[in-house]
């Protein structure tokens, strides 16, 4: 049970991601992504408060929040046309140039560790304008100087069709923005209770930072109320365990 005035890490992350999503037309969220899903639904509720019917939110894991009727390819067709503005990816490894590795650690032909695979990353990362990288485990194991296998590259050579790419990396410790021109991350803010030194210590890649690094803005009381009262019951339909743990809310029977 969370004290009403205490802000949970998950709420801070969802609020930060919702700000990053901003005012866009269509946010899609893949499987097993309760925090990005919370953020997307929060962005939609903010749109409703402003009286706009956007963003449209597609939660691929949900039957209800998923309009696709043309099979699994429709998501990728949509993205290829520019009909998806925001998507989320993670990585077994993420490196300082925004490359992500969802395949293996070690030599590809004789790996030490094998991950499930690249899913849709080698397409979506190129064509979704706001790709948000989300990895709660912020360590030198996950945030590396150079990935062992590039499932999808952070930047592309001149001439390669690239209408999208990473804009940010959110971890349990901090918020990086990605600068495609410099091919580097820049520390935007550290979450409350964390420090720049700690972020340096636990990050395997070099990154830019301003002279003074801000603390990540916690959700306002209005945002918290919207998340807990309006968004949480929607999250519970798709992620009942997460909603029960974070928001102490139980899903209505389907």
């Amino acid at each position: 049970m969370t004290a009403p005035n205490m802000i949970r890490d998950e709420e801070l992350l969802a609020s930060t991601i919702a700000d990053l999503i901003g005012d866009v037309r269509h946010v899609a969220v893949g499987n097993a992504s309760p925090i990005p899903a919370t953020a997307a639904l929060l962005a939609r509720e903010r749109g409703r408060q402003r009286g706009v019917a956007r963003p449209y939110v597609s939660l691929l894991q949900s039957r209800k929040h998923n309009f696709f009727t043309d099979g699994g390819r429709e998501l990728f067709d949509c993205a290829g046309q520019g009909r998806i503005d925001v998507f989320f990816l993670s990585g077994g490894q993420i490196d300082g140039q925004g490359n992500i590795n969802l395949v293996a650690i070690g030599d590809y032909d004789a790996p030490k560790v094998r991950f499930p695979g690249s899913y849709g990353s080698a397409h979506l990362y190129y064509v979704v304008p706001k790709m948000i990288l989300f990895r709660t485990e912020h360590s030198r194991r996950t945030l590396v100087e150079k990935v062992d296998f590039i499932s999808a590259p952070g930047v592309s050579a001149d001439g390669v069709h690239r209408t999208g790419g990473p804009i940010a990396l959110i971890t349990n410790r901090c918020f990086f923005r990605f600068d495609p021109a410099r091919k580097r991350f820049r520390l935007e803010s550290v979450h409350p209770g964390h420090t720049v030194e700690e972020v340096r210590e636990h990050t395997g890649f070099d990154f830019d930072q301003p002279d003074t690094v801000a603390v990540t803005t916690p959700p306002s009381p209005e945002t918290l109320a919207l998340m807990r009262n309006t968004v949480a019951p929607q999250v519970a339909e798709v992620y009942p365990q997460f909603a029960a743990e974070i928001f102490n809310i139980t899903a209505h029977p389907a």
């Binding site: 699994g72 390819r73 899913y119 849709g120 397409h123 979506l124 999808a152 590259p153 592309s156």
Partner: peptide
């Protein structure tokens, strides 16, 4: 990557030898 398998099967559906796809380069 997911859309590559969709696209390669769609090529077979159409009876054409290949399908172009965005992404993947690099």
């Amino acid at each position: 990557t997911c859309p590559a398998i969709h696209a390669a099967l769609q090529a077979a559906e159409k009876g054409v030898p290949f399908m172009p796809m965005r992404g993947l380069i690099g």
